[in-house]
Design a binder for these strands. Structure first.
Lengths: 150, 150
DNA sequence: CTGTATCCTTAGGGATACTG
DNA sequence: CAGTATCCCTAAGGATACAG
């Protein structure tokens, strides 16, 4: 029996069943930070996820109610992935992960300014981020985390 | 090549490398929520981790600087696991996971009172939790999450 | 180009035996 | 009891082919 089959009445355990794998939060990050919405955009992420893995993750996240998949209006072949409300509610968790990571990872000095800004007034920032994502804007303008626009 | 080998300058990616597996945060939870400190106590968690898996997780978390392992003063055979500062700093992330999980998991209604209380004044609660953990106290008095004491 | 299917490989959990 | 070692098995990622 695999761990995922184990139920418990713990909310943390539930959360880990939902997004406690190595990729899900990175997909959320790609959407929130970089405004990504398509398969190809996710595929081009820094961490080089394989197509098969990405495909499964997207299906899984949709099944779990974290992503919505809709056919693009412009290009019918293209599917567009957006965060559901359940997915948008992961923003605070994502920010805490980022803050913790930035604190202890020697390689992420560049993003510390942004992290610090978020810490100043977290609830307000979460609102602004949430709004930005819902309206299709990205937190970061480029592939770099150095320049953010909120 | 496995995903863990992939470096990126993303703080979230770093955080996921550290604690993005299915067990690490549950061990942190066991320490923070229930005041657990020994192998046997972790082993008895609701989710029934196997001895071998627990052993590897503990070694790994110590290696990553999240846990400290010290020989118990009373019983020399017994190792005691405590959170480092780096580990204690995971408390905010853990609380966000719990809040998110409680919101969307139908089975965790029992813990919502506690979650609500934390949301009232999160920074203060984090401090109190941190202090409690450092002094060896548990947030929850029993195996149930219903009764908390802070 | 978007996404899935296939095949291969591996990390890591489960059960259990075992050492101290 | 604390913890590790061994063996097995499965979930899931990587590479790639390929279908729409």
């Amino acid at each position: 029996m695999k761990r995922n089959d184990r139920k418990s009445d713990c909310a943390i355990n539930y959360a880990l069943d939902m997004i406690g794998d190595p990729w899900s939060m990175l997909i959320v990050r790609d959407i929130v930070y970089f405004g990504k919405r398509t398969f190809g955009e996710f595929l081009a992420s820094q961490e080089r996820i394989a197509t098969s893995a990405l495909s499964r993750r997207l299906i899984d996240l949709e099944y779990k109610g974290i992503l919505d998949k809709t056919t693009s209006l412009e290009d019918k072949r293209k599917e567009t992935y957006t965060l559901t409300n359940k997915g948008l509610d992961l923003i605070p968790t994502m920010l805490e992960l980022a803050a913790w990571g930035a604190r202890y990872d020697a390689n992420t000095g560049a993003s510390s300014a942004w992290i610090t800004a978020v810490e100043q007034d977290k609830p307000a920032m979460i609102d602004r981020i949430r709004q930005a994502v819902r309206t299709g804007n990205a937190v970061f303008s480029e592939g770099k985390e150095a320049t953010w626009s909120l």
